[in-house]
């Protein structure tokens, strides 16, 4: 029996993909549009009509402000990653092995930096660091960015652990392996891709972070987002389009890598537990 196929379905069949195509265009076009704008040889923000030019990329590369901002962001993001990744990984392992009633409270505490509005976090860090003299210091920025990055590391590594066969750990324990050996020899190799993905997220969180940096960074710690924020605010030129293009390419490459790592980790874990599943 065929239900009376109605206009809604035909309408839906055409309208839904059409509407979604427009939304996808809205999501992607603004990001893609900055690429041709950045290749403009002139000083106006229009699509180049004849020749393409790397002039604005050279401007960025030769400007001491932009190169120093890049170096600052890179240093701060690296330090953030080096602190957040081990802390977050250990905590994710602890959470995954925990059977305690305190678990929801701990999860809520760890997710707090995601829930509190970023401007409130920025003010809190400003008030904390101003009397300690840590405003205008890279230490303050690294501490603040680490707090923001930790939840991401925990979420990503925890997701990698949920597919893990804990039977492997029990086997190791029954053979007499101490906990540390178990972590280093069995757990870390198995969830390595997840840890690497978490590290990439931590790096990007710090590298992209604008609001807190605007509040607590001094002239010596001008990061790339601050440089860009003030560029947009003061003098908008194709150089901004060039910087935006570079950042889009960088985050696409980095987070694409993280996604590949995550998928590889999934495959690896299902491979490791395969003998148990496929009887």
């Amino acid at each position: 029996m065929k239900p009376p196929r109605m206009s809604f379905s035909r309408f839906g069949r055409l309208a839904l993909p059409g509407f979604c195509a427009l939304v996808f265009a809205f999501l992607m076009l603004p990001i893609l549009a900055v690429i041709p704008l950045s290749l403009n040889p002139g000083s106006f923000l229009v699509f180049p009509e004849e020749a393409l030019s790397l002039r604005w990329y050279r401007t960025l590369g030769e400007s001491p402000q932009w190169t120093r901002a890049f170096a600052n962001s890179f240093k701060i993001a690296t330090a953030t990653t080096l602190i957040a990744t081990p802390l977050g990984t250990l905590a994710a392992i602890g959470l995954a092995t925990m059977r305690s009633r305190a678990k929801p409270i701990i999860v809520a505490l760890i997710s707090a930096p995601l829930v509190v509005p970023v401007v409130v976090v920025a003010v809190a860090f400003y008030f904390l660091f101003a009397p300690l003299g840590l405003v205008n210091s890279p230490v303050g920025l690294v501490v603040a960015h680490t707090a923001l990055a930790l939840p991401f590391v925990v979420i990503v590594v925890h997701a990698a652990l949920t597919g893990l066969d804990f039977g492997l750990l029990r086997a190791a324990a029954s053979l007499g392996a101490p906990p540390l050996t178990m972590i280093v020899r069995i757990l870390v190799p198995l969830i390595g891709p997840g840890i690497a993905a978490g590290a990439v997220f931590a790096f990007m969180t710090s590298f992209d972070e604008t609001t807190i940096a605007l509040f607590i960074a001094g002239p010596e710690q001008r990061t790339l987002p601050i440089q860009m924020f003030e560029g947009v605010r003061e003098e908008i030129s194709p150089a901004i389009a060039a910087a935006a293009t570079l950042l889009v390419v960088a985050s696409t490459l980095l987070l694409g890598t993280a996604e590949l790592l995550r998928r590889r980790g999934e495959r690896m874990r299902s491979g490791a537990s395969a003998p148990h599943v496929r009887v």
Binding site: I31, V34, L45, F207, D208, T210, M228, V232, I240, A241
Partner: peptide
């Protein structure tokens, strides 16, 4: 892609 970059794209 960072919110700042996307905002900058719209500003452009």
């Amino acid at each position: 892609t960072s919110a700042l970059v996307r905002t900058a794209a719209w500003a452009v």
